[in-house]
Write a protein that binds this DNA or RNA. Structure first.
Lengths: 226, 226
DNA sequence: ACGCTCGGTATTGTTGACAATATTAAGGTC
DNA sequence: GACCTTAATATTGTCAACAATACCGAGCGT
């Protein structure tokens, strides 16, 4: 069961975290119509905070709510995941460009260190798939915050990444190309270290584009259904 | 006073609409620390739906909420508005490209008709500034929905445009170049009509870039303060 | 036998009261 | 006189009961 993030500020935040992780991890299935009282008993909440959390989830597009008809988790399709990658391509391209212009030298050093640890983890091949995904999120997370563009970071970290994670869990879609991705990450960081925003943007767009094409290939192979 | 949208489905939706318009139009000033009970009496609501609406507004970044410390409308700066335009540039560029690939011929015809009416309005110069802004939103709105990218449209229509409108009201920043903008709009629609996605994206990016530079110029002239 | 209408039931939406916490001001001490 | 401590207050967070609405099944009509 998805537990609350340690010491959530308020009950509503707790409910929000619980539900978000439950939806993202697929604990709440797609299209699942679920009652409020059931959610309350399941997560030890009362309806007040729960409803507040439901509203936030709804406005983020993770679930849909018809008046007096209950809430149901949003249904997903592979084609929608591809659309998400189109958005990531342009937004993270911008993030990389601005990160190249604005990240501090220290942040860039940390970013490189992050990649080093990713490389070590991949070569040890321990907990591969899981860590690969987490490392990927870590990398993109740092670039988003490094852009110093508050709204951009908010949209990426608060909306898109959760969406992508949800789709990946639902469709059991892991990137599945760790070494390639790591090399692409390295080149992006190089461009950032050289303060070459244009190049960083280009490389990031190509990186995400490659990931999208990888998913498209799986669809063609019938591994994923549209 | 900002009234509820006619026949909101639920009290919480009503509260959300009221507050959103109140914030966007500047009826609730920036940094204004305002109590829940005051909001209730002001908009004829009770605290339950209000709190639900506050949560939605918070997750959209229109106001900030510290536990037990109340809510305050987000403070804005001109530099943040510029960052918003950077995001718009890449996202609406994508929207234009996808719209060129996916809009129906009928939608394109409607889009052109929309521009015709804008032109007529501008030449009559009646209610210029207001209509200019509304027409601009109408244009960008149609392209966002025409992209057939649900999440992209949601982010543009549900988040970014409200943000931009808020900043514009707060900073009294109207675009102030109606004829230029109309010409740029026409070229974008031409590209879409020719199903030239690449060109549509390029033109849209340049269009928004020009609007951003216009704001930057105002900042340099001291009209806007950072 | 099938479809439609109508009422019961369960769920959601809303309300008001209760409890917990941050802010504010006053008082005391250094 | 300035700073810290402490208590009163007002505001927020939470909870449980009430009202409104949609869903579901039974009864009736065709």
């Amino acid at each position: 069961m998805a537990e609350a993030t340690l010491q959530s500020q308020t009950r509503a935040d707790e409910a929000f975290d619980c539900l978000q992780t439950a939806i993202v991890t697929g604990e709440l299935g797609p299209g699942e119509k679920i009652g409020e009282l059931e959610l309350c008993s399941r997560f030890n909440l009362t309806r007040g905070p729960l409803r507040e959390a439901l509203g936030r989830l709804e406005s983020r597009g993770l679930l849909v709510r018809r008046p007096h008809a209950g809430v149901k988790v949003v249904s997903v399709s592979a084609s929608e995941l591809l659309e998400l990658y189109r958005i990531r391509e342009v937004m993270e391209g911008l993030a990389a460009r601005q990160a190249a212009e604005r990240m501090t030298d220290e942040e860039i050093a940390e970013l490189q260190a992050t990649l080093d640890s990713h490389e070590a983890m991949i070569e040890q091949a321990q907990g591969q798939a899981y860590y690969q995904a987490e490392g990927d999120y870590d990398f993109h997370h740092r670039i988003a915050t490094g852009s110093r563009n508050a709204k951009l970071a908010q949209m990426l970290l608060g909306d898109l990444y959760y969406m992508v994670r949800m789709y990946r869990y639902r469709l059991s879609t892991s990137a599945g190309r760790p070494h390639l991705a790591l090399g692409e990450h390295r080149r992006i960081v190089e461009a950032i270290a050289h303060r070459d925003g244009e190049l960083a943007e280009f490389l990031m767009k190509r990186h995400i584009n490659a990931a999208r094409q990888n998913i498209e290939k799986k669809i063609e192979e019938g591994v994923l259904t549209i």
